[in-house]
Design a protein around this nucleic acid. Structure first.
Lengths: 342, 342
DNA sequence: CATGGCATCCAAAGCGCTTTCAATTATGTA
DNA sequence: TACATAATTGAAAGCGCTTTGGATGCCATG
């Protein structure tokens, strides 16, 4: 069943049927009703390829999927995708996913853009001074960045969470609990969120004239294993930190294992706050000692970015170019008063 | 730059240029060279939408992404996708990803199929007696199933790993090491791979007239937390098992934590073999006690399935309908001789 | 009653590609 | 040399949709 057949069936022209379907005003309401009714009865579905050819719109969002061996972010990628998809399915949008080595990001993005089968781009895994931004600006294609690029002029469309604020708040909470020896287990050093989180911790500490020692800070892939290693290192320091900030619940998993193995109690000897992306895989409230977290749903961010992207493609309402989401600080049992000095 | 312009530039017809580009035999080699050269110089890229309209091929693979809250398989989904993508990018194929609640699988799949913007379907997360199979057969669209459906006639195209064989082999190894008390921590009970893995264990044990007790078997989401809970339960049994089989390295993570917390030593008091999907996130050789695993790369499976799917769509060489991959049994330090009876 | 404006509707021209059918040229054979 | 055959190339017809540029008929207005 195609437009021609449908219009013949209705005794109308293809033009009118097309307009009725696409909500154009110059079609009689009664006629539109009739068309809609016929669509329902026949199960007619417009041919995507034809629409695309005629309109020049692909109905799809392009994204580059980093796939290098050892790349850590699959969990987050999947969760984010779920969010994007949730919104996309409502608008009959789909994704064009291009896998690429992280070192090949810029080129992969360009290839995707000129391939002609995407209307908009989604960009993630931002770094400081990210080289993709310049390329994106030179393209005439809508895009939204998830995260930001530290050091770059913030004049590009993005959605980010307030990483600095989150870790500032978390640090403040621990300060109020009397902690003075802090450590931070962070994501890879070149990634934007890691830079900002570190800054948040440092600025909160600075207000109390405290500093974050070099050996109390690790940058690594956010895996369970790295979390454990980092925590082991912290616990062996002569001046053992009592307050730990952690960039990921996955990483916290390993960190907590190390705490337990050392015979220390979480929330008593060691306080820990982790950032929670609200992964269904790993709920901080279900940890043996429920985790205090800074929370922001990755999935919700996906939904929102899809809205903006799709809205822009459809020339709908204008969206704010920059959005910064605050995170929630959820206090659970992994944080407690600083232990008495021995 | 489009075909028309390109052909005018070359002084050829659109027909000839099109044929030259698509590898048709009836075009002079010299002419083809000339065309290819011009393409390189002009940067011409065929318009996907037009190709699609003309050929009726979308150049894309459809997949349903389960996204229900609490759904565990994002890690695997991302890794698998990386494999699919690796192959797809070589053929300029893309993915149409439709998110859906696992309860809505059948309907989501049908919607995707009739949406008209996919050429083939990829199906995963198979269950016993999976209801999607009947629907897929009624469709006239190529598809490949990752996994199988226990209880269903195996007459559909699939690629699976020999789950039963893997766990049979693993169990045999442990039997040879003298273990007699076994436990299995498995994935969700309705999933096909879980059924087969259990069968593998049971049949190996049966050869020694051993059985797998009900309380030595758990079915749960394959998360770290569930692994820990399961192991804790096992360790508290009066007749504590010494040989543990585990369906996932993620789950093993939690299990090992429980072992450590109980003051037991992995590879001595407790032997453990886990199935390793070769997730870059979690390498069994990097565990504090390197893990003995049954190994099969999820990513490689993705590549292969993409080959079959794309090959079928392009009417290329016929592919085997059913493929069953053997897994490797990699012995590391987490397995050792059964401890002496106390 | 002629006129202009409005609400509807339609014919037809693309969008950029593939592919059928046919034409043209080159090659080989008798 | 004449004719069948093979090798190349092209013209044109779609693929199914959107959209431009009119038609058409109806109404209120003067």
């Amino acid at each position: 069943m195609n437009l021609k057949q449908l219009s013949e069936l209705l005794g109308l022209s293809q033009t009118t049927v097309s307009r009725a379907l696409n909500g154009y005003p110059e079609v009689n309401e009664a006629t539109r009703e009739r068309v809609l009714q016929a669509v329902k009865e026949t199960g007619y579905r417009p041919n995507k390829a034809a629409q695309r050819l005629a309109t020049g719109k692909a109905g799809s969002i392009g994204l580059v999927m980093p796939t290098a061996p050892g790349h850590q972010s699959d969990v987050h990628f999947g969760e984010f995708l779920a969010g994007l998809g949730e919104e996309a399915v409502r608008h009959d949008f789909h994704f064009v996913i291009m896998p690429a080595d992280p070192d090949d990001e810029v080129a992969a993005l360009r290839r995707l853009a000129i391939s002609g089968n995407v209307d908009a781009l989604f960009i993630a895994y931002m770094r400081g001074h990210d080289p993709r931004l310049a390329m994106l600006k030179s393209l005439s294609m809508p895009y939204v960045v998830h995260g930001r690029s530290f050091g770059a002029e913030p004049d590009y469309p993005y959605l980010d969470i307030d990483n600095e604020g989150a870790f500032y708040d978390a640090t403040r909470l621990l300060l109020q609990l009397g902690h003075t020896r802090f450590a931070l287990m962070n994501g890879p050093t070149h990634l934007d969120f890691a830079i900002r989180r570190r800054n948040g911790v440092i600025s909160a500490l600075a207000e109390r004239s405290l500093t974050l020692e070099e050996d109390c800070m690790t940058h690594a892939l956010m895996t369970d294993e790295q979390g454990m290693l980092a925590m082991e290192r912290f616990l062996q320091l002569p001046q053992r930190p009592t307050a730990i900030l952690c960039s990921s619940t996955v990483m916290a998993l390993g960190a907590i294992r190390a705490v337990n193995q050392a015979g220390l109690r979480l929330g008593e000897d060691i306080s820990l706050i982790a950032h929670d992306d609200v992964l269904p895989l790993l709920k901080p409230e279900n940890f043996s000692v429920p985790l205090t977290t800074t929370r922001s749903s990755l999935r919700a961010a996906g939904v929102r970015i899809a809205q903006r992207l799709i809205g822009t493609v459809k020339h709908a309402a204008p969206f704010p170019e920059q959005e910064l989401w605050r995170t929630e600080l959820i206090v659970r049992a992994s944080t407690g008063p600083a232990p008495q000095q021995p």
